[in-house]
Simulated assay, not measured.
Amino acid sequence: MTQPVFPPLFEGLALEGPADPFEKACSHAIRGCDAGLVVHNVGANSLNAAIVFAPDVPLRDAVMMLPLCAVGFQNALGALAPPEVAVHLDWHGGLRINGAVCGSLRIAAQTADPEAEPDWIVVGLTLPLWPQSDDPGTTPDETTLYAEGCADVNAVDLLESWVKHTLVGINTWTDEGAGNLHRDWRGLAYGIGEDITRNGITGTFLGIDERFGMLLREAETTHLIPLTEVLEG
């Protein structure tokens, strides 16, 4: 398989078999690898990858790498897929293609303290390419990339594009702040205005605050659920 080519300052590390890029990236980050490591595992049925970051801001702001990478994925797929393919983003990192769940993003950090500056952050991508079952009707709310009219999208090209578009998002965030990220994410957000349950609270998803915290309206009370709540330990 052709190895992906990444922008300068990014370095690829290919895995094979069942190896999990997210776990491997976290392991390398703990040992002190440089930011920009892209661990990837492109298989016949799935694309899995993870990027190591070192944002020089407190965790409460650095956690915005999750929606930033999500918008980067939408931009990447939008550049390669047919124009009728719709991508939407769940607040917690879920990806939806044409309305159905199709993979997700996840995030981990060196610290859980919102006020501390993390030594590293890892954002991982899991994207199913082909159904694992011969009967996809058993999971009607889930789909795969190639089942949604994207059979001509090469997984390696998509991985390269995700990293490139994420880099563009990082540069914009660094130079101009989070305003563009907020605008872009809101235009792709799934479920705003609908009733959902999060952290044991059921209410109407009103939107997000300036740090992408979820605003959840329950009766007469609006709860704020920080985005740091989705960090994996």
Rank of each mutant, 00 (worst) to 15 (best):
C33V: 14
A35L: 10
V42W: 02
V42N: 04
V42E: 04
V42G: 06
V42K: 01
G43I: 07
N45R: 15
N45V: 09
A49E: 04
A50Y: 03
A50F: 03
I51A: 07
V52G: 01
F53H: 13
F53S: 13
D56N: 12
D56G: 08
V57Q: 06
P58H: 05
R60W: 09
C69M: 15
A70E: 13
A70Q: 14
A79E: 11
V85P: 07
A86Y: 09
V87C: 06
V87P: 04
D90F: 12
W91Y: 05
G93P: 04
G93Q: 02
G94C: 09
L95R: 03
N98K: 02
G99D: 04
A100C: 13
C102Q: 00
S104K: 11
I107A: 02
A108G: 08
Q110S: 15
Q110W: 13
A112T: 14
E115T: 14
D119Y: 10
D119I: 08
W120Y: 06
I121E: 00
V122Q: 07
L129D: 00
L129I: 00
W130I: 14
W130A: 14
D134S: 12
P136Y: 06
G137E: 13
T139V: 15
T139Y: 11
P140I: 05
D141C: 05
E142K: 13
T143V: 05
T144A: 01
Y146E: 01
D152H: 01
D152W: 00
